[in-house]
Computed example of a mutant assay.
Amino acid sequence: MGSLDELIRDLRTFDRRKEVTNALAKAVRKPVPEVRKLIRKRALATLPSSGGFGKWVSKLSITAAVKLQGRAAGVKLKGRRKGFPDKRPKVDLRRIDQGRVAAPSWGRRGDADWHFQQVTPGFFSEPSTEVDQWRAAAVEAVDEALGVIRRG
């Protein structure tokens, strides 16, 4: 089993570096569909269902960006959701994940008629870290990349 430090060191001198990094990024992204399902399930299970909020949040788009350079090498998940068509505040998925949701005060929709409501935190962050497939995919991808580099 190789380490990421070895891989980064060996990639510097390897002439087909782009080919190896593309294959590595593709292998690390393999668990993303499973993580998407888990995040959507968690949103439906933990966020309020009244008014369709949990269902609305569960339809967010989730993308994965793989970074293979520097000390911050890893996978970064991003969730996005378009805002509502009326004058509601911008959707802040990070704040929802932390457990706070902007809600209208008793049905009023003016700019100053909003308050924050507490919800169960972690609908996005918990499922994305619970998946053991991330570690397995990363270790397998690094080992495969090191094998390609060492074979030449």
Rank of each mutant, 00 (worst) to 15 (best):
V20F: 09
V20H: 07
T21H: 00
T21E: 14
T21A: 03
T21M: 12
A23P: 00
A23T: 02
A23W: 04
A23Y: 00
L24Q: 00
L24W: 02
A25M: 11
K26W: 10
A27H: 07
A27K: 13
V28F: 04
V28G: 01
P31C: 06
P31A: 04
P31F: 02
P33C: 01
E34Q: 14
E34R: 14
E34L: 12
R36G: 10
L38G: 15
R40S: 13
R40N: 05
A43Y: 08
L44M: 11
T46C: 07
L47V: 06
S50C: 01
S50P: 03
G51Q: 10
G52S: 10
G52D: 09
G52V: 07
F53R: 06
G54R: 09
G54E: 09
K55D: 14
K55I: 01
K55T: 13
W56Y: 14
W56M: 10
W56V: 01
W56I: 01
V57E: 04
V57T: 04
K59L: 04
L60A: 15
L60F: 12
T63Q: 12
T63V: 11
A64T: 05
A65Q: 08
A65G: 06
V66I: 15
K67Y: 08
K67T: 13
K67V: 10
Q69S: 13
Q69Y: 05
Q69N: 07
R71N: 13
R71D: 13
A72K: 14
A72N: 15
A72M: 11
A73Q: 12
A73L: 08
A73V: 14
G74S: 03
V75W: 00
K76M: 10
K76W: 03
L77T: 08
G79W: 11
G79C: 12
G79H: 12
R80N: 12
R81L: 15
R81V: 03
G83P: 05
G83R: 03
G83C: 04
F84Y: 14
F84G: 03
F84S: 09
D86N: 11
K87G: 13
K87R: 13
R88P: 01
P89E: 02
P89V: 01
D92S: 11
L93K: 09
R95T: 08
R95V: 04
R95F: 02
R95M: 14
R95E: 14
D97V: 04
Q98I: 02
G99S: 10
G99H: 08
V101Q: 09
A102V: 10
A102T: 05
A102I: 06
A102P: 02
A103T: 13
P104V: 00
W106A: 12
W106L: 12
G107D: 07
G107C: 03
G110M: 05
D111P: 10
A112L: 12
W114T: 05
H115T: 13
F116A: 10
Q117E: 15
Q118G: 09
Q118F: 09
